[in-house]
Design a protein around this nucleic acid. Sequence first.
DNA 1: GTACGGATCTTGGCAGTATCTACATCGGTG
DNA 2: CACCGATGTAGATACTGCCAAGATCCGTAC
Lengths: 195, 195
Amino acid sequence: MNENVRIRSYHHGDLRNALRQAARNILEEEGLGALTLRAVARKAGVSHAAPYRHFPNHEALLVELAMEGFTELREEIVAAGTGPGLVADRVSDIGGAYMRFVARRPALARLMFGAQLPNRDSFPQLGSAADSIGNEIGTALGDTALGLAVWAAVHGLAMLVLEDVIDLGQRRSGLDVLPSRAEILLRSLFSLPQK
Amino acid sequence: MNENVRIRSYHHGDLRNALRQAARNILEEEGLGALTLRAVARKAGVSHAAPYRHFPNHEALLVELAMEGFTELREEIVAAGTGPGLVADRVSDIGGAYMRFVARRPALARLMFGAQLPNRDSFPQLGSAADSIGNEIGTALGDTALGLAVWAAVHGLAMLVLEDVIDLGQRRSGLDVLPSRAEILLRSLFSLPQK
DNA sequence: GTACGGATCTTGGCAGTATCTACATCGGTG
DNA sequence: CACCGATGTAGATACTGCCAAGATCCGTAC
């Protein structure tokens, strides 16, 4: 009945959320490769099989985290795309928001856009969450085709830097300069004047 | 002294190449997740530890395959970008070549552009191979900044479809229609008339 | 020709992982 | 207040990457 759930008893009381939080921490601090079910269980202080009472398998936990990521990304795109400016400016605003998300949560972005997740057919909720990203970009720009073009360009630059395929400058990881480079890229692509 | 190496003896004779071929087959037929060292060894008909005589670890085998992929992709980009046409047409030619590569070797593309490979700092050869992709696109188009923009747009569309984030039509996997969609995208992005 | 040394391959083992089954414990309900 | 389903634990299986020790073979020096 109270918010402060007991801990250290046989039954955890709020293990599902504890597991999600532990998983988020591991993902951010140690990366996607360290995100094993057993590591999550250890971090939550439960036995190695306890997570199976709340997630049918490893994949389901990854889906849960990815879904949160898509929700968060969608909100930031909406916030960036509802300004009163010209459509042309929203292109770079949305692109910047996308890049800032990837730069702030690189491991989560890897999970969301990598090959670790199940097929969109076998997990329709994931497909819908991903679709909503495209829809928000399209409606913010008032043009579905333009939205896809912007999404592809922004996503491509983000992935090339995130996966270390290209090296933007000598900064720590290239992620630091990603948002500003994104703006340059988009203004170049869509023939807008550079600021 | 002859090309037909003996097989079925204690020493294989050409195990390194046999392992690479087995790895390529597994990657294409069963996907990146099935590409374990032990599976490669089984397919090559040797014991589970034999691959360690030719590759220091699992990662090194992945790097080898990825390097081949980058070489192949670079060649196709060069071939598509050396035509006598206008620069504007080369944009869609190169984009189409990139998309056809991804559509033809989806699992290899996942490996090349995914998170399974080591850092470009810890494996400089990989970084160089990736750089050469960007360089070829840039020189074919005669403009480094334009090359990066085209690369990002094409790569982004390819990855969104490859990783099942967006769904291009109702075809088998979306990969089928990728090349034609790429052309539409690029002509839209760069304000070229649609064919 | 032959003994040897190094390269190659096998066997066996360790640690870590996902997943399953059987069992222990607890909390809410009849 | 007893019981029953939900939750957590312990243990086992089948994988994986990787390492160590031994077996085999090939080319080379003598």
